[in-house]
Design a protein around this nucleic acid. Sequence first.
DNA 1: GGACAATCGATTGTCGACAATTCTATGCAC
DNA 2: GTGCATAGAATTGTCGACAATCGATTGTCC
Lengths: 233, 233
Amino acid sequence: MATTTQAVTEVPARSAEKEARGGSSAYLKLREAIVDGRFQPNERLVEADLARTFGAGRTAIRAALVRLDQEGLVERQPNRGARVRLVSDREALEIEEVRVALEQMLARHAATRITPGNVRSLRQILEEMTARVEAGDPLGYSELNSRFHEMIWAIADQAVASTLVANLKSQSIRFQYRTILQPGRPDRSLREHSTIVEALASRDPDRSEAAMREHLSRVVETLKQAIARHHTR
Amino acid sequence: MATTTQAVTEVPARSAEKEARGGSSAYLKLREAIVDGRFQPNERLVEADLARTFGAGRTAIRAALVRLDQEGLVERQPNRGARVRLVSDREALEIEEVRVALEQMLARHAATRITPGNVRSLRQILEEMTARVEAGDPLGYSELNSRFHEMIWAIADQAVASTLVANLKSQSIRFQYRTILQPGRPDRSLREHSTIVEALASRDPDRSEAAMREHLSRVVETLKQAIARHHTR
DNA sequence: GGACAATCGATTGTCGACAATTCTATGCAC
DNA sequence: GTGCATAGAATTGTCGACAATCGATTGTCC
């Protein structure tokens, strides 16, 4: 559907259906632009300019900015305008830790609700992921990785938690690519995902939660290392 | 400062400092009114009316509504206005489950950072809580309970997670009173809190996380029962 | 030359008015 | 009476204009 450069099929906040028709609404356009990194970090967002470039009125832009501010993608200071919010390394880590906590919980719930059909679907994604790793295609892998986790969210059937993680993801998105590019990470990641599927298939909440925790904790660790490296060079 | 009937010192979203001066800004006023339950559930929120009652322009009200919509306290439908969002029993449970996940994580982090001074403060709150239980004052207890948890958040020093739970709380606030009023609950709750403090004092992340999970899981259980009872009468 | 004050341009915040849309009530046919 | 179309009221969405505020530049004094 979306023709972005990054392979990210994003759940836009809480209102996929609200503004149904094709990507209109200043909010969606602006959001996409920010998430895709089409603005410099910390770049000033002047309402009049945005209105012109997105072909919308200043009113609509204004509403969009308020919303994006609340969402954490943009920072607004009274009388001083809005900037795209720069997520610090520290904050990126914090976000990832929250993700760990929530996805753990979601895995636990998924374990009690999963069906044989769900298991099949997950295994299928796993196979495709293997193929991408062998083909040396980190971007495709990343896309499948998202699909994998989103499917677990769907199985868990916890709307509140799912919405939260989805929003979190968009905030840290610019950092994610860092982790999968680490040497040796793809193979490991694959094994971890496989463990998760087995745990879920056994319908064991504790095992599933533990497997997810194990996986995401390693992601956090990898991120920490990546940041440390990035910081000292 | 606030002259509300409920004893809730709420953290207003992410911007305590933004609108510093005394409770002005349509957003804060409206938020307080909703959280305090000054509107009927599902009541329509007409912009013009709100503007008059809060002494603000329609523009300001509009911005506030957008923000509250994003925050989940209000529901806006295009061309059809805004209503105070009715959180279903189902959703209240989901919210509480998310809270479990996040507070677990926060307890874990708090355990690694807690100081002797922090322990003293927590023990002090615990004592006051005991006094309130003996005095049969559930409202005062509830207030202290909030203080207790908020202190743990502060110790954990995880801004992202703390902001999220704080926002969650405001959504489910109308349900909270239900749990503590259950017979036998106060004593139990007290013991659970005590266990949490001991675990934190030992600086053991696993124990602390487990203690918090234990505590909040019981809260969820109690809520489930309260809802079931409320539903079948 | 450097610190400080005044000025100007740019940008945000707010208001009022009007267009677009939805909701309500009335009238009419059957 | 019920169903349906229509008119009118109420409400939201959007625009343009203007006031308030901020940042930077310029000018002045020591």
